[in-house]
Amino acid sequence: MMRIKEEAVERHVLAVMVDNEAGILARIAGMFTARGYNIESLTVADISEDHAISRITIATNGPPHVIEQIIAQLDRLVPVHSVRDLTEAGPHVQRELALVKVAGKGENRIEAMRLADAYRARIVDASTESFVFEITGAPDKIETFVALMREVGLVEVGRTGVVAISRGPDAA
């Protein structure tokens, strides 16, 4: 019987500057699905003074030759101005924000507050039996925090997906 081989993958974070126009997200997300690429997370927001340009941050994974193709395929889309591979470019900061709702009483409630404090999560809503924490950080910090919250009454979680920017004075 034939088997389908899997290749080793690496994670890359790309910063993509695009024209802020209708359908641009569908164009980009669709290119990924059409060519069988992965999207771990994708965030987009208008970043220019005249609202003409949006910055899309895409966390993706794949073997190195696929990452190279992803960048080339993004770059040939007409509304795409530039594609930067932040992982390749060097030191960069990655941040994500999450809102985490936890419900419980007694020991669980106290433990949730203690952990939130240790992780520098902020309480943005509270009731007698619940909290909503706001936490920012690198994706793995948020992973860990959410995993801990599961043990003390996690109800739901909302995450923004990662945004990233290179370190130092220059634009990537």
């Binding site: 030759h65 190279e68 193709q69 080339a72 395929q73 040939r76």
Partner: peptide, 8 residues
């Protein structure tokens, strides 16, 4: 002329 054709 299409960079994505190279090394595909």
């Amino acid at each position: 002329i299409d960079r994505s054709s190279i090394n595909k």
